[in-house]
Design a protein around this nucleic acid. Structure first.
Lengths: 192, 192, 192, 192
DNA sequence: CATGAATGAGTTTTCATTCAT
DNA sequence: GATGAATGAAAACTCATTCAT
């Protein structure tokens, strides 16, 4: 009757945590943070409310954990663009491709982040994150357009970012949206 | 103490109603529907909760009234584009210009609509509206690009709509966003 | 169907508030703050939990309101001693008499304050109040003994205060405690 | 890896138990019984919750164990007074001195007992203990004053007990309280 | 028309206790 | 003996809605 080992406990904790976060993100993304009760999350995740509070200090802390994770995913987009030196057009294409792939595979994250960014008064503490991430992405795009010799790189960067964001939104509420085609359209439009 | 005439009463009624809707929209847009209490709306609007329920059957009904109004505003964009026959490029320019003007002057409406569109499970009844509106706008753009002789008018229409939507979003969470400049950039990009 | 006047509302509010505070104090005093639930208070007071939160921001705020009221009562003791100029012995007698009368008529206040003072970590914000009140009372006593020509007025003041406090405590957990007699004993002992 | 002997096990068990009780008493005394969670006690004591329940059947049982221990300490006061036959003044002095010493060295015990005595409805089963203890102490004092030839020995006993209790209370919530001086003051006052 | 006190169902959060290992 | 994940009942708190005046 040896007690469970530390590794065993860690394993259990990790699994439970991830399960809860996954379920919570889905619900937050589709129903909104305030319309998703802890009870619902617990029930959907098949655990008790109490356990949830064992892992996350509060409902808000749970949201934060999810958002942090989302950013880690988001950073992959930027890294993808930087791993290839040289041709800025290729870099742009890679960034766009990767972004589309990520959004396609993580719609809920995207939906959730968008919601948070639209309620600045409520999620003040997360605005800094969101804003920071945005600036990073913007700088990368500006840099690329500079190297492409674009007349007004900042303007072009903003336009590219807007086209991508807009596409993602429409994808989210349009059934049968041709997401992959749109990626190509954007690449074509902005690498001419 | 002359008794007020019916018109005066109606006048007062209308003003009070509009006041409440204005206040509610602001709060809904910035704090979200579920995070905005009836008490807060009533206090901010300077009326009692009881009066509010005199005008609107429920919190949800209040939201619906606001959304309906938002659509009336939205329809102006389309009409603006159609009032000018002839040159499709000019039509596109007019539509874009009008849309930007409207968003600039009614940020809260867009912010709110965007939020609602991101929570399909919660606001199912409003999804039909939003979707319908979108289709209408899309058709207008397709028609314009067809008359401009664009190779793939649907793709171009989708791209234009995306660029606009994306710009609006970024405008909403980016301080000092150069919205007017962006309108020109889009016009330039899509009318070549 | 005229709406209720402001005075009417104030009257109602005041009555409800006092009722709740009275019931809460009784329960806090006999069962302790943490062992008294809001539900219990509401039920005992014959109101809903919601109403309670209409008047007091939180359980803690309710406690604070009660404590503030207790201090107002406590201040009567000091004032009683000061209304009579001249003979310090008479002043001391008056203070002691008044204190005993107040404790007799407000056992619950006293019990509650004592509990709070014994849990400094929990009720940090109230310690300042309690400490301040104590210093005030102490100074009054010192002043009296000075005028009585006592050799060590501070020591004598401390002893008097201790005798009173101790008597009150024993009164609280001893059935048939001869409280009035004890007042006389203390007066006799400390005015010689 | 020699198997531990039974004595060793018992030794460990006893130490662990005492450690838990010590930690629990500290927390109960400063934060109150209901405001101290089992988790906190376990963490502070460096053991698991499970182990704690191995030693004590419930949170209440843990409290009881602590209180019992406190009474054993309290009984030392009485015994101290009785070990010296003869001079009642000396006996009184010894009792007072011992009591002050014990309180000084076991503040948390007194603090806790005082709290418990103030919440009769909650800790009914402990009231009997406390009351009994009190009566015992009272009788000893009465006996001493009788032998001192005091006019009203019961009154004097009550007063002495009150002065001591009151002093202890003030000591507990007054920083830098001159406890030792107070012992002398009381001795002087009541042995004349 | 207009008020805001009052309700109660639902929400977030806490915590003593159990139990598989 | 020992661990801490998991539970569930109960606590604090919120808020849309009703209603007497």
């Amino acid at each position: 009757m040896a007690p469970k080992s530390k590794e065993q406990f860690n394993e259990i904790r990790k699994k439970s945590k991830e399960n809860i976060m996954q379920v919570a993100m889905d619900l937050f993304a589709h129903n909104g943070f305030h319309n998703t009760s802890i009870s619902k999350i617990a029930k959907e995740a098949g655990v008790s409310k109490g356990l949830l509070y064992n892992y996350f200090e509060s409902k808000h802390a749970l949201l934060e954990a999810i958002v942090k994770e989302a950013f880690d995913i988001g950073d992959q987009v930027l890294e993808s663009g930087f791993q290839i030196d040289g041709d800025p057009k290729l870099q742009l294409r890679t960034i766009i491709k990767t972004a589309f792939q990520l959004v396609k595979g993580n719609q809920e994250y995207w939906r959730l982040l968008l919601q948070l960014s639209l309620q600045p008064e409520v999620f003040e503490d997360m605005q800094a994150f969101l804003a920071g991430e945005n600036v990073k992405q913007f700088q990368v795009l500006v840099n690329i357009f500079e190297r492409m010799g674009t007349a007004n790189p900042e303007k072009e960067a903003r336009l590219t970012a807007a086209a991508m964001d807009g596409t993602f939104i429409q994808f989210m509420y349009t059934p049968n949206y041709p997401l992959d085609e749109m990626a190509e359209s954007i690449i074509e439009k902005f690498t001419k």
